[in-house]
Nucleic acid binder design. Structure first.
Lengths: 150, 150
DNA sequence: TCCCTTGTTGCGAATAATATGCAATAAGGC
DNA sequence: GCCTTATTGCATATTATTCGCAACAAGGGA
């Protein structure tokens, strides 16, 4: 049952906002996505469950979800705005230029340097965007079970 | 004289491309811009010199200039795609959220970390985007009378 | 449970930014 | 100067996202 999810979703929305069918569906779609879908893709997936959900509603709902902190929206170079469910811990992205796959990473050092740079320039850092674009090294796949060299 | 500039522009364009009036004008506009104008602004400035240059031509020309490495195009959050003439040395940007001003900076440490992270994830870094968003710490109020040099 | 208020939806049309088809024009090699 | 053909200007198309509005439905109250 999605009772627990609906409950927290409702809490997120607050008293002035209603927990509607479309919102429930869209929340499930973004909540269960393993990738970073765009609005059109979310609409497609939502339509599988309820074909009459409109694209406008998807856009409106995504904006709402972003406002209440349920998701984050990113616009990477060359592609439409993509969505991911609100990360528990901040991270940045590396985009695989060959497959379009998005890999998450974090670097405390870079975060620290960003803050320092901003301060040195006389600014308080309020946000940032860091994206790496790359293509896979022609390193062969790891044998199953083999641990990566950290 | 803009002979020297026209010459290098012509070289940049190569033999198959023509050095036309509009291109000359747009090249001068972006070449002399101290800020990071968007297409519409470039069109405005170009129109001061030649009012019949069309916006389409501005877009086409900017794309061309980017292809031949004459300029770089950036799309910062919340604003249209902006242009800067090709930097001699790579740098990233800090966007002043209060004024919209763009400040350039560079950090060899961050660049280094980016490469390391990409490699650790199995990628060769082919590009990146780093933008800092912030607001001024304390008004670096200039003493009255002390004007910045134009 | 039914009602009533009002937030929400679906639809189509509206924007905003950028791209494109095409006939007219103009570089620039000869 | 001429001729080929890249380039332009104009209007129109695209793409991604938003908005207006009448119909609808969530959910607190009687």
């Amino acid at each position: 049952m999605s009772n627990v999810q609906s409950t927290s979703l409702k809490r997120r929305l607050g008293p002035a906002r209603r927990l509607t069918g479309p919102r429930r569906v869209i929340a499930e779609v973004v909540g269960s996505a393993k990738d970073h879908p765009d609005a059109a893709e979310i609409h497609r997936r939502a339509a599988e469950r309820d074909p009459q959900i409109s694209l406008s509603t998807v856009y409106r709902t995504l904006r709402l979800f972003a406002e209440v902190g349920l998701i984050e929206q990113h616009s990477f170079e060359g592609s439409r705005t993509r969505v991911e469910r609100a990360p528990t811990a901040h991270h940045d992205h590396l985009i695989d230029m060959e497959t379009g796959r998005i890999i998450e990473f974090k670097s405390q050092e870079i975060e620290q340097l960003q803050t320092e740079i901003a301060e040195r320039l006389g600014y308080q850092l309020t946000g940032h965007r860091l994206e790496l674009y790359g293509r896979p090294l022609s390193r062969p796949k790891r044998a199953p079970g083999a641990k990566p060299k950290a």
